[in-house]
Structures are given as structure tokens and as C-alpha cells.
Design a protein around this nucleic acid. Structure first.
Length: 192
DNA sequence: GTTCTAGAAC
DNA sequence: GTTCTAGAAC
């Protein structure tokens, strides 16, 4: 047996060329897939920010919510049906929505429980991505698509200010001074 | 999006 | 001295 090291040229890499393509790879990974229908795939978020955290993605190559038009309304209604199914299958209270400025390619809807208890929840940006207006609820996105036929981008200064929003508990009026204090506080809500 | 870690904050 | 945040990653 040769102990020769594997070279990069001899290993077919499963790693995407760029991190922003990671979801497109996960859509094909049987270990990640929760549901797979004609129009959409549901996968587990690789770095869940709460006890329950799924992503719903279309098979259609829609890069982001900013590529949507009125022809996609029926697809979005399918997203709503999937959300309803997931709520029926889970004990936890779930929310569905989209990040105003997503980091990963392929349009995706987050379905996430309100507990926000997870070791992968680490930074203020993580928190503010789900607990400020940076998180666009499913119903609001669908309504905007029906009303004006597309999704309007948020101004970059609004993005900056949302990410700098002081920490605020999503379940009460408590304003933690840092992330460890917030995470400790969230555990107390879980006991009630 | 995450990881790593310098240096700010405590 | 330790905890915590925030910017670079070729």
C-alpha cells in the first residue's frame, strides 16, 4: 500500500468553488434533504440558528428574491404550503422568511423556531439577521410580489443600521449587553 | 456563509 | 488577565 498523499488533482472535490454556492450543493445531498417535491427542496440549515432551522429552495435556478416576478407567485404559494406542512410536523413555534440581503446563492426561505437556542448562533449579525426587519416574513414578501411584481432592495445604509441594532430579546423587553448574556437569557425562556 | 485571531472592552 | 467583538480571508 502506498502512503502517497492524495493530491488535489486526484480527488474529485465535492466542495463548491465558492462558499456562496454551498446551498446548491446541499440541495443534492441526501443527508441534508428533509423533503423533495416537484417544485421545491427542504434542507436542514448546516449551521442552525435555533432548535429547528430549515431552508426551502426552488429547483428552478432563481438566484435570489430580487429575480422574482409575478410569474413566481404560484411557486411562492407552494413555499407557503410547505411552511404549513412543517408547522404541522413540528412541536416548536416556527417563522418563515427571507434575508433582505442573502449571502448564499439560490433563493431560499428560512423556516426557524422562535427559541433561537443553538451553538451556531454566535454573533450580533446572526441575531439581527433573524430578529430585525432584515428578516422579511413570508407573508410580506408574497404581498409585495402581488402588489408591485418584484421585491425592492433595501438601501445599504438601512442594512448597516439594522446590523448595528442593539441586542433585544425576541421574547421580552430584555436588552442584553452582549451575545453571551443574550444566549444565557434565551435558555431561561425555554424553562418557562 | 464560517473561521481565525488581534486588539478592544471589560 | 480574560472575555468579546469585528475584520481579513488571494
Amino acid at each position: 500500500m502506498s502512503k502517497r498523499k492524495n493530491t488535489t488533482s486526484s480527488i474529485p472535490s465535492k466542495t463548491p468553488k465558492h462558499w456562496s454556492l454551498g446551498l446548491i450543493a446541499s440541495m443534492k445531498d441526501p443527508n441534508s434533504i428533509i423533503k423533495n417535491t416537484e417544485k421545491v427542496v427542504v434542507i436542514k440549515d448546516k449551521y442552525p440558528k435555533a432548535k429547528v432551522h430549515y431552508l426551502v429552495l426552488p429547483h428552478e435556478e432563481i438566484n435570489s428574491i430580487y429575480k422574482l416576478n409575478k410569474s413566481h407567485i404560484s411557486l411562492l404559494e407552494e413555499f407557503g404550503n410547505i411552511f404549513k406542512e412543517l408547522k404541522e410536523e413540528n412541536e416548536s413555534e416556527l417563522r418563515a422568511g427571507f434575508h433582505a440581503i442573502p449571502s448564499m446563492q439560490r433563493m431560499h426561505m428560512h423556516v426557524i423556531s422562535t427559541d433561537m437556542i443553538s451553538t451556531s448562533l454566535k454573533t450580533k449579525i446572526h441575531w439581527n439577521s433573524f430578529c430585525t426587519k432584515f428578516f422579511i416574513p413570508y407573508d410580506e414578501l408574497l404581498q409585495e410580489l402581488k402588489d408591485i411584481g418584484n421585491i425592492r432592495k433595501i438601501p445599504s445604509e438601512l442594512h448597516t443600521s439594522l446590523m448595528k441594532t442593539p441586542l433585544q430579546c425576541n421574547q421580552c423587553s430584555f436588552k442584553p449587553k452582549n451575545m453571551p448574556e443574550l444566549k444565557d437569557h434565551l435558555l431561561k425562556h425555554q424553562l418557562l
